[in-house]
Simulated scan of single mutants.
Amino acid sequence: MTGVTRLTVVTGGGRGIGAAVARRLAAEGHDLVLGYARDADAAEATADAARAAGATCRTFRADVSDPEEVDALFDAAAEWGQVTGLVNNAGATLHIGDLVDTPVDVVRRVIEVNLTGAVLVARRALRDMDRGAAIVNVSSAAATLGAPHEYVHYAAAKAGIDALTVGLAAEVAGRGIRVNAVAPGTVRTEIHAGAGDPGRADRLAAGVPLGRAGEPDEVAEAVAWLLGDACPFATGAVLRVAGGR
């Protein structure tokens, strides 16, 4: 879409991978709408960084599992112009442990945010997109590793993201819209602390073939590549960014 104003919605855009993606896309000339669930201060800090890089950026609070709030997010984006990109990133694990010990409300919420939310967001984004637009879903290496004794429920939801990516890519290819995914491995973000294990990235680093945890900026590079013009024939792909796992 060279020469076209890019307007990209990033869900979960305030922290972690979403924040890194926002900074990276701002540097490439995207205008941005950052969705966030709770941390308004973090979202505004990310927006300030995007603005410093030259982007027009606004934040919008929205629960991706609520279709009315998803509509409100995209209605707000439409006030600025045509949405050309989506980074479907909002996610959470919330708990670490065996599935049998995971509370039902946690299981439900994790699936609502990571899978149902992603489906609802993609569904609405496609209503607003035209030829040349692109979606990047954020999956996880857990989708194929299964995450036993940690969060099988989250892994199952992310496996759904892989299926969403493949199916939706085929469904909208005729409209000239690409749909891909990145599948990060162990990355240094707040998601570990949110699940009660802030040291998890360091604890698991030795098991990664590259010998370390990943950084959000490394995932952002993959997202930016898939969202941009460098790979116009790539759709339905799940790009693993997991250090060899």
Rank of each mutant, 00 (worst) to 15 (best):
A222I: 09
V223M: 13
T46G: 08
H192G: 04
A173N: 09
I135M: 06
A22C: 14
P216R: 06
A201H: 07
W80H: 15
V113M: 09
L204M: 13
V166N: 03
M129C: 06
G3K: 11
D128Q: 13
E171H: 06
V238P: 03
N137W: 00
G117S: 06
T11G: 09
I111V: 15
A205W: 07
T235S: 15
A90H: 10
V113L: 14
A122D: 13
R58K: 03
G132I: 13
G91K: 01
P216Q: 04
A19E: 08
G3E: 12
C57D: 03
R58D: 10
I17D: 02
G91D: 04
G194S: 08
A234Y: 11
G176K: 07
Q82L: 12
V136Y: 03
V166W: 01
D197A: 14
V152W: 01
D105E: 15
F60W: 13
D105G: 01
V4A: 14
T102E: 15
G211Y: 00
I177V: 15
E79H: 00
E215Q: 13
R203H: 11
E28L: 15
G97D: 00
D202A: 15
A52S: 13
C231V: 15
A125R: 02
G244D: 12
G16Q: 05
V64W: 06
R61D: 02
V172Q: 01
R212D: 11
V33C: 07
M129S: 02
S65P: 04
V172G: 03
L34E: 03
P103S: 11
H153F: 14
R15C: 00
A147D: 14
R23S: 13
W225L: 15
P148W: 09
G16F: 10
Y154F: 15
L34T: 04
V33P: 08
Y154I: 05
D71A: 15
A181G: 03
V100F: 04
D66W: 06
T144W: 11
G13D: 07
F233R: 09
N88K: 09
N88W: 08
D48W: 00
H153A: 14
A237V: 13
